[in-house]
Write a protein that binds this DNA or RNA. Structure first.
Lengths: 329, 329
DNA sequence: CCCAACGTTGAAAACGTTTTCATAGCGCGT
DNA sequence: ACGCGCTATGAAAACGTTTTCAACGTTGGG
């Protein structure tokens, strides 16, 4: 039916080996190369990537496994990863786990069957902890979250510092009853919480942290409950963009004025955070850089498999807006 | 090195054909099936999908080609498509074109080489017009945008009606100087504009439409220019969520009060549109349904390749919020 | 002038599966 | 008891490439 490399070879009057060498890289005389290229154009030949992959044992494919592409943080990182991948001639298979360890396992198995070159993965703590070093047939680069130290390359935000920075900023603004709302499934949320608690302790304040499933609805519900309690906090630090949105919704529903009744700060400098009134104070993550660095770690690992494990820690940028009060206060 | 089907066959004391039949679906006695399944577990066998695809000539893979995954509309549709695809045992290859016809061509060629089962595609008008019926080796389902009628299956919003609805709503609120800001590369923007212009004409109003490259920056710049002109419109209809964000930014920069100085309405009921003050009036697109319907059209087409071309037109939902004024005015 | 070395080419093997085809075994109707 | 049809199974071909290996012609050194 469709035209194969044999047809091209016949049309060019050469062997399939020569056609293959023209398409890939191999020693071919200029004359033959021209003939073959003409034949390729004439026949409209399209190489069959499945066959190529089978024979060459190089799939030129990476897996990208995230919690939910609709989380703007992952959206942005994905885009950066895909750009870098396609630029390097790699295909990307995207998987959404919804923070479900079972789906994580399922997709990891799928990646093995695909014989992918490598995987970029944002795991829940549940599977990150169980992830053994060489047990999968490909290198894994962790993003946003980490597993046990020393096992896998990874690129993360300096979450402890970021959590601390938000507390320091709020304290500087004169707030002291600062609550923390964190996701329950990721190492990242844990680290941000650690930073929050350390900073609170350093300031001699009592930390009060709660954890929720990492989605806007759960965060909104918990925040609404919390803020209706008598001893409600005067400020809330929220561990990611999704949860922050939920918390803001809760504040709106309860008709709490921000920052008057409640100061609000969180993570992820998403486009909408400076369109709401007041703008939200957040720690911005360098999303493009995270994606690029993840790909770089993966390439390095593929080049030198026995290189020591590396972890890239990137700094966040505190973006101060109205939701944490006026500078003069 | 890695364990193949021959190893499993040897371990189970059967032929590779039998193993293959156990893994796929074929007639195998219960006894042998159990033996093979045990051998699979014992050896930790993972089928090689490249080999499977080559031999079976079924790639179980679809392409999803959109402008930019960071556009929340495409994010949501992608997620729906991926869910449906994985549920059906299909892999998804995601591509971002940035509305660039050259990259669209590049990725379509890639899809041919991948021998994909089908493609779901949001094309620019430039390539949509050049897209011939059977010229690619796989069926194409268009989403969000359409090409020449009768060539490809597709699922779109009723864009003309939606554009009309926004005009009618604004007129009902007593606004008459209504401008339209539309993207320049998609059939969708053109249709929304057509609906806008038809409705304006019906109301005896003079339409004033401008087009921009479909990204927030370009829209913001054009809106800022426009709104600084002497005869600036009293309302703006904006053709998608990205552009709407740009327009809102421009209004904020110029310190125009919404809806007092400027009423604002657009498309895509993104989460942030009801968090800004005032909330934005938008036509909501049924994003999940669009993704699901696209997959359904694709499946149907694969089952019956000669079925007549179908176009699914979904209705939008007008979500009225403060940005278009108060009901009582 | 001969032989070694080199670079280009083609024939054929290999990649790991699925699928075809032939066969063995079995139950059943006559 | 015979043959017919049906099912389960295995041997081997096939999928479309890349890669190995051997052979070829050419060049350059001795």
């Amino acid at each position: 039916m469709s035209v194969g490399i044999r047809d091209v070879a016949r049309a060019a009057g050469v062997s399939t080996a020569t056609v293959s060498r023209v398409l890939g890289k191999g020693p071919v005389s200029e004359a033959l190369r021209a003939q073959v290229e003409a034949a390729v154009r004439a026949t409209g030949y399209r190489p069959n990537l499945s066959a190529r992959r089978l024979r060459s044992r190089e799939t030129q494919t990476i897996g990208l496994i995230v919690a939910d592409i609709r989380n703007p943080f992952f959206t942005a990182v994905s885009r950066a990863v895909e750009d870098a991948a396609y630029a390097a001639g790699l295909r990307v298979i995207l998987c959404n786990t919804d923070e479900d360890p079972q789906r994580e396992a399922l997709y990891l198995r799928l990646m093995e069957e695909e014989r992918v070159t490598g995987v970029i993965f944002a795991p829940t703590t549940a599977t990150a902890d169980g992830l053994r070093a060489g047990s999968l047939g490909f290198p894994v680069v962790l993003i946003d979250r980490t597993g046990p130290p020393g096992l896998h390359d990874g690129v993360v935000l300096d979450n402890v510092a970021a959590g601390t920075a938000l507390v320091d900023h709020l304290v500087e603004r004169g707030v002291s009853r600062i609550g923390g709302l964190f996701g329950s499934t990721s190492s990242t949320a844990r680290e941000r919480r650690a930073g929050y608690e350390a900073a609170m302790a350093r300031h001699g304040l009592a930390p009060e942290a709660r954890t929720v499933l990492p989605n806007a609805e759960a965060a909104g519900a918990e925040a609404a409950r919390w803020l209706a309690e008598p001893g409600r906090p005067a400020a809330l630090i929220v561990s990611n963009g999704l949860l922050l949105m939920g918390a803001l919704r809760a504040a709106r529903t309860l008709r709490l004025s921000v920052p008057g009744d409640l100061a609000l700060a969180g993570f992820d400098n998403e486009p909408w955070t400076d369109l709401v009134e007041p703008g939200l104070t957040v720690v911005e993550q360098p999303v493009d850089e995270i994606g690029r660095q993840a790909m770089r770690l993966l390439f390095d690992r593929l080049e030198r498999p026995d290189q020591p494990v590396r972890r890239v820690v990137l700094g966040g940028r505190l973006v101060v807006r109205g939701s944490t009060g006026r500078a003069g206060s």
